[in-house]
Write a protein that binds this DNA or RNA. Structure first.
Lengths: 146, 146
DNA sequence: TTTAACACGACTGAATCAGTATGCTTGTTA
DNA sequence: TAACAAGCATACTGATTCAGTCGTGTTAAA
């Protein structure tokens, strides 16, 4: 299960992308439209800002805008940013590899072999699907080798 | 990330399957061999027993044995049993469907469309991979449509 | 009848989730 | 230039989950 926070982040980014090139939206505008608790959304947008996905303008008539083009922002990137690694096992994460601790010789580990396939499949989808793909209606549905 | 508990469950089942047809193993035997905290393993085996995957004999010279044939026990089944739904969104779970609450019309939800593909891919792997597949060495690697 | 096994509920300490609350800082505009 | 509206940032909280541990049963074979 992905976290509520990630869902909010994706929906906020989608809202900004749909709103149009470089135009700002108020936090409260996004919060209202996407039904996200205002203060929680504030935190999320700060995270996205620190990661360089969005920018903000302060003061009256400020707000947030998408910094990058929608075709360049993948679901995978956002999920990793908010929820951490996508991999089902720590020893399969590319962004935050950790040894499993309990399995001695890693590349003989039976479980690892199975979950590696799962990890590849998920990455295959999430790292190739962008905000733009979703906005333009039909999510592409290529056959992917697992 | 799958839970530690699921990993232990899978490893315990694999140990029982490898041990041979209908032969029992002591909890402490499994615990020692697979490096699983003994008391924790006790709990896990009880769960597996309640689900009908294993059986136990009490008293002196008791122990646990696998009730079903290794070819019939999938990774997906075990993970659902221990960790709950595999689906990345509650509204995509077949075993424990819940509405997302925040998205109004479910089959227009953009996020849902993307994560449905992820869910199908994961299920495609986990519900077709069995204990036997893993024991006999090579995990099969069929191309799967996503 | 002892002993070595499983059975089962209660408890715990740490971490994570999903937010709230409170008090800044900054920029625009009246 | 002062007030107001916006974002910035930290701290806190209540509920839940994780990963176990503890203690006390109950059962069956030797």
């Amino acid at each position: 299960m992905i976290s509520q926070k990630s869902k909010y982040a994706l929906r906020a980014l989608l809202a900004l992308a749909a709103h149009g090139d470089g135009r700002t939206m108020l936090i409260s505008e996004i919060a209202l439209q996407e039904v996200i608790p205002r203060k929680f959304l504030e935190q999320i947008l700060l995270d996205l800002k620190r990661a360089g996905l969005v920018a903000s303008r302060r003061g009256k008539a400020g707000g947030y805008l998408l910094l990058r083009r929608p075709e360049t922002v993948t679901f995978g990137e956002v999920l990793r940013l908010i929820d951490g690694p996508l991999a089902p096992l720590p020893c399969l994460s590319k962004m935050a590899y950790r040894r499993c601790g309990d399995c001695a010789n890693e590349n003989a580990c039976k479980l690892r072999k199975v979950f590696a396939r799962v990890a590849d499949a998920t990455r295959g989808i999430l790292d190739t699907t962008t905000l733009a793909d979703v906005l333009t209606g039909g999510v592409k549905s290529l056959p992917v080798e697992i």
